[in-house]
Design a protein around this nucleic acid. Structure first.
Length: 571
DNA sequence: GCCGTTTTCGGCCCGACTGTTTTCAGTCG
């Protein structure tokens, strides 16, 4: 059983946590965290890399020592350091440290003085009034912890589309009193991550305190966590946390950069500033006392001799090295998209007739749209059998005759059956322009079986695009267990493509898998899977995800004009 | 533990806010 990247990353993360509580060298702790992130963000599994003879110490943040430890973990599944640490500090210390107001130092204090090893131990100690005996703990700490222990942990991250709705409402409200001031939502929202942990709102205005006050009075605020002259933190009814930061105009770019993150990207930039003998913080880039840049992000990147880095790339996954050489990818944007290759109509479970979807797609500036209703197995969605599909083909021919400057491609979202066969016979699939294929049941197959099922489906030369390749529903359903390395390799061999499903609940391929597809030479379709006209506008979320995966227009199927697309769809 | 157009040793991002202090450590982002 090979060890997955996520498992190795988790081991390093746990080790970092325990080292921190132990009070070990903080930079050593950081090295483990950084290595964990690097491994988590790799487009290929380290097991595969090692087998190919790659030198892991070439990876950022991984040196000789950690490369050796990784090799050992892959080989034996064991990580000695972590085992030792767990023996030295038994219990659920990581969980305790995740409570608000408790960090490594105080967890260590609790452990040493009160022998607190679990959340339950902590609960008893707080209720018994024993925390107050400790230096640094007082009535407020006690109350805060009691409150945190009383309620179940709230959901940690929100879907991007949900966060967007909250952000729009809030920004509109705060903008009213801002006059000429600027306001923008930064953080992972601006980096367009598929989920957002909190909303980081940045304001450049004279009267900063006023905006903060305004926020604390917002009707959806249920809790004010902090409120100072330049920084305010609140929780909204929905559970999402909002951090508001106010800066002067001359610091806007620096603050935007700082607040956009990622944290790791910022740390790397500050390191570069140090190399020049400068200091970078949220107020600007400083040479001693003198501010040498800060009003815009561009001027700061320029001073640091870096090409400006789009927010979607700021994850410290190699973008800084490329920015140094001015080799950053030219990311795909919404305006590059010429059509939608996964759209439903009321023939299956869509809500709109074919003509209506086509008109709406055309209105969005597209040149084509593939109609891909469900196939017969999905009875609940009124999936099409061969006879109805044949009828639909005729209908599309008639519609196309009437359309000018727009083409409806004939397609299907055909089910991949449990054994890897497709849900409709070849004789009808051969009459289509696009065959999108997807798994809709039997999610619980073993990794090997699921992977082979999908690869077998791709053996069918009619299959064009593998839709929502991991089947995840963010926050609701885990992705099914599939070896994406093998799937992408198989897609490359067979000349088929994979989808980024732009539906905000799905957004798979993930950014990392999208990057893997690119690295393996597999082109990607960005498709909405729209079941209604409004859902056609989800395209932008798919483009966001593609940008996070470093994809350029040439990596995307549906940036092509129709003639070029048709050539690519032939196998 | 990593890393190098100052360096193979000696650095490693930086500031706001809180709570408990009486000058600051710890947490957080």
């Amino acid at each position: 059983m090979p060890v997955h990247n996520a498992e190795i990353a988790a081991m390093f993360g746990q080790a970092a946590e325990l080292l921190e509580i132990k009070g070990d060298n903080p930079f050593r702790t950081r090295a483990y965290r950084r290595a964990a992130r690097t491994i988590e963000g790799l487009p290929k599994s380290v097991a595969v890399l090692l087998k190919a003879g790659e030198d892991l110490s070439e990876l950022p943040g991984i040196g000789k020592d950690l490369a050796g430890k990784i090799a050992t973990i892959v080989k034996t599944g064991k990580f000695d350091l972590l085992e030792t640490l767990k023996r030295q500090l038994p219990g659920e210390l990581g969980e305790i440290a995740s409570l608000p107001g408790l960090g490594p130092k105080r967890v260590k204090l609790l452990y040493d003085k009160l022998a607190i090893r679990s959340v339950e131990d902590l609960r008893r100690a707080v209720k018994g009034g024993r925390l107050r005996e400790l230096r640094g703990f007082g009535a407020k700490s006690e109350a805060k912890l009691l409150a945190a222990l009383a309620k179940p942990p709230t959901e940690k991250r929100f879907k991007l589309a949900v966060a967007e709705a909250e952000a729009d409402a809030l920004v509109n409200l705060l903008r009213q009193d801002l006059g000429k001031g600027q306001i923008i939502v930064a953080g992972s929202y601006r980096r367009r991550r598929d989920t957002v942990g909190d909303l980081d709102i940045l304001v450049a205005a004279r009267d900063g305190a006023g905006v903060g006050d305004q926020l604390t009075k917002y009707e959806n605020v249920v809790n004010v966590l902090a409120h100072g002259p330049t920084r305010t933190t609140v929780t909204l009814r929905s559970g999402i946390q909002v951090d508001l930061r106010v800066v002067p105009d001359e610091s806007y770019g620096a603050a935007l950069m700082y607040f956009t993150g990622s944290k790791e990207h910022n740390i790397a930039l500050r390191g570069i500033a140090n190399e020049y003998g400068w200091k970078l913080n949220e107020y600007g880039l400083f040479d001693g006392e003198r501010r040498i840049a800060g009003a815009t992000e561009e001027e700061i990147y320029k001073k640091l001799k870096l090409a400006p880095i789009p927010p979607e790339l700021r994850e410290d996954r190699g973008e800084i090295a490329l920015a140094k050489k001015k080799w950053l990818p030219k990311l795909v944007s919404l305006s590059d998209i010429r059509g939608d290759l996964h759209v439903h109509s009321d023939w299956s479970d869509g809500t709109v007739p074919i003509a209506g979807m086509a008109a709406a797609a055309k209105q969005r500036g597209y040149a084509y749209m593939a109609l891909t209703d469900h196939s017969q197995r999905v009875t609940i969605a009124h999936g099409l059998d061969a006879a109805r599909l044949a009828k639909q083909i005729g209908e599309i021919d008639r519609l196309n005759d009437k359309l000018d400057g727009f083409v409806i491609l004939k397609g299907i979202e055909v089910d991949i059956l449990a054994d890897g066969r497709l849900d409709l016979p070849d004789r009808i699939l051969s009459r289509l322009d696009v065959v999108v294929a997807a798994v809709h049941y039997k999610f619980d197959l073993s990794r090997t079986a699921q992977t082979e099922r999908i690869i077998r489906a791709m053996d069918n030369r009619h299959l064009s695009i593998l839709a929502h390749p991991t089947g995840r529903l963010i926050g609701e359903r885990e992705p099914y267990d599939v070896d994406m390395d093998r799937v992408l390799a198989a897609a490359h061999e067979r000349g088929c493509y994979v989808e980024i499903n732009a539906e905000p609940d799905r957004l798979d391929l993930t950014d990392i898998h999208a990057q893997a597809a690119k690295s393996m030479g597999v082109k990607v379709a960005i498709s909405t899977d729209a079941h209604s006209i409004a859902a056609l506008d989800y395209m932008r979320f798919g483009v966001d995800q593609a940008r996070r995966g470093w994809l350029e227009p040439a990596d995307i199927l549906n940036t092509r004009p129709l003639s070029a697309l048709k050539k690519l769809l032939k196998r």
